[in-house]
Deep mutational scan, measured.
Amino acid sequence: MTYRVRIENADGEVVTIEISADELREKGLTLEELLPPNARIVEVEEVEP
């Protein structure tokens, strides 16, 4: 499974990243732990691999 994640950074700019569930598991991280300081998740969407 892959996630498309929209993130708002500290400057108010919204960027989109895609990350797979396998990648998260391998790194032992959650989506929140990948965020840079002062950023927030705006939207998470599951996409087909």
Rank of each mutant, 00 (worst) to 15 (best):
I17S: 01
L31T: 00
V5I: 12
I19Q: 01
V14H: 11
A21I: 08
R6Q: 08
V44S: 02
V5T: 01
G28R: 06
T16I: 13
V42N: 01
P49D: 13
R4C: 02
R4D: 00
T16M: 10
D11Q: 11
I41K: 02
M1Q: 07
T16G: 02
A21F: 10
R6H: 14
T16E: 07
E33R: 03
A39F: 15
R6I: 13
V44F: 06
E18T: 12
I19A: 02
M1W: 12
L34G: 03
Y3T: 01
N38G: 15
R4I: 09
E46W: 10
V15K: 08
E18M: 14
L31E: 00
G12K: 05
I7D: 00
P49I: 14
V44C: 06
E46M: 15
P37E: 13
L34F: 15
D11M: 11
E23R: 04
E13F: 12
I17M: 10
P37W: 08
P37F: 09
V14P: 04
E32N: 09
T16P: 01
R40A: 05
V47M: 09
L35Y: 02
G12A: 02
E46I: 15
A39G: 09
D22P: 02
E48L: 15
R40M: 09
S20F: 08
Y3W: 12
A21V: 09
E13Q: 13
V47F: 13
P49C: 11
R40S: 10
P37G: 06
L34P: 00
V44T: 03
M1C: 06
M1N: 07
Y3L: 11
A10Q: 12
L31G: 00
A21Q: 11
V5W: 01
D22W: 13
E48C: 05
P37Y: 08
I17C: 08
T2E: 03
Y3G: 00
E46F: 14
L29N: 05
P36V: 03
G12S: 03
A39D: 03
E26Y: 11
D22C: 11
G28W: 04
L31H: 00
V42P: 01
V15W: 15
R6G: 02
V42H: 03
P37R: 06
E23W: 15
P49H: 14
N38T: 05
